[in-house]
C-alpha cells in the first residue's frame, strides 16, 4: 500500500464508522477540492452509493462556476443534495472582524440546517495542515448544544477508537480528511480522475488555491493549468494554502474564535 492507499483506507474506515454509529448523518459539500474528494471517498466506502444527504450551506456569494459544478455533479453522482441558504451578515457576532463576520454566516447557516433536519453527525472536509487551530482537531469531534467546540477539553482519541456516542441535543463533527495534506488531495484527484471546479486551474496567470466566497477569496499567481502542474507548484511553494482567505489573519485569534463558535 502506498501513502495514498493508506489515506484512502483510513478515510473509508472513518466514514463507515460514522455511518454505522450515527443516526442522522449528513456530509458538507462546499464544492471545493477537499469536499469533492470526500464525496468520492464516500462512494468508495459505500460501493458507489452515498447513503446520507450531502449539504451545500450556500452563502449565495460563490463563484458562478461553483453553482454550475454543483448542479452537474449532484445529478451525475446521484447525490441526495440539500441546499440551505445562510442568514445575512447582520445576524453574526458584531465583535468579530469584518471578513470573519462574513465567514461566520456559514456557521449560522450550518447551525440552522442541523436544527432543521435534526442531524446528529456532520461530516466535514477539514485538514490539519490547513490551519494551526484545525491541527488540534479530533477525527470525531463533539459539539455542544449551540454547536460550540470545547477545544480546551477534548476527549481522548487513539488506536482508531472514536468517541461516537453523545448526549441528546449535541452533535458530532466527523473529519475523514484530517490527516490529508493539500498535496495528498491533488495527488489523489490526479490518480482517481475526480472532477474539479475550473477555477483551480490558472487563467491569465492566476488561479484559486482555496475557494471561499467571491468577496473574501483572492487568487494566487500561477501558471498551473493541469493537475500535474498544480502538484509541481505545491511541491515548490512556501506560501500557505489559505493565504488567499482574508478572514484567517485579521486578528491573532480570529480563526480560533470562528471555530470555537462552530465554524468548520
Amino acid at each position: 500500500m502506498d501513502h495514498l492507499d493508506q489515506l484512502e483506507a483510513q478515510s473509508v474506515y472513518i466514514l463507515r464508522e460514522a455511518f454505522n454509529r450515527i443516526d442522522k448523518l449528513g456530509m458538507l459539500w462546499s464544492l471545493g477540492k477537499d469536499s469533492n474528494v470526500m464525496v468520492w471517498l464516500a462512494r468508495k466506502a459505500f460501493f458507489g452509493h452515498v447513503p446520507f444527504p450531502v449539504m451545500h450551506i450556500d452563502t449565495e456569494r460563490k463563484f458562478p462556476e461553483m453553482y454550475l459544478f454543483r448542479e452537474r455533479y449532484a445529478k451525475e453522482w446521484g447525490l441526495n443534495l440539500i441546499v440551505e441558504k445562510c442568514p445575512p451578515v447582520e445576524a453574526t457576532d458584531p465583535t468579530l472582524p469584518p471578513n470573519a463576520r462574513s465567514a461566520a454566516r456559514k456557521t449560522l447557516g450550518l447551525r440552522d440546517t442541523i436544527a432543521k433536519y435534526g442531524f446528529t453527525g456532520i461530516i466535514a472536509g477539514i485538514r490539519r495542515d490547513e490551519e494551526s487551530v484545525r491541527a488540534k482537531e479530533r477525527v470525531f469531534s463533539p459539539r455542544g448544544e449551540s454547536g460550540a467546540w470545547d477545544f480546551r477539553d477534548q476527549p481522548p482519541e487513539f488506536w482508531d477508537y472514536f468517541n461516537t456516542d453523545l448526549p441528546a441535543g449535541t452533535h458530532l463533527r466527523v473529519h475523514p480528511l484530517l490527516s490529508w495534506t493539500e498535496l495528498d488531495i491533488w495527488k489523489y484527484v490526479q490518480r482517481e480522475h475526480i472532477p474539479m471546479v475550473e477555477l483551480y486551474f490558472a487563467k491569465g496567470g492566476k488561479r484559486y488555491r482555496s475557494l471561499g466566497d467571491q468577496d473574501i477569496t483572492s487568487p494566487v499567481v500561477s501558471e498551473a493549468i493541469t493537475i500535474a502542474e498544480i502538484i509541481a507548484e505545491l511541491e515548490a511553494t512556501r506560501e500557505p494554502e489559505r493565504a488567499g482567505r482574508a478572514m484567517d489573519r485579521e486578528t491573532e485569534d480570529a480563526f480560533e474564535r470562528l471555530r470555537a463558535a462552530g465554524y468548520m
Binding site: 495542515d129 494551526s132 491541527a135 491573532e252
Partner: peptide
Amino acid sequence: FLMDAFQSERDQGITIDTAQIW
C-alpha cells in the same frame, strides 16, 4: 508559538492539546 495555536496556550506558555505539522 508555531505549534501552540490556541490563544490560551500562547498566553500561558504551555501546550494544551496535541498538534501536527509536517
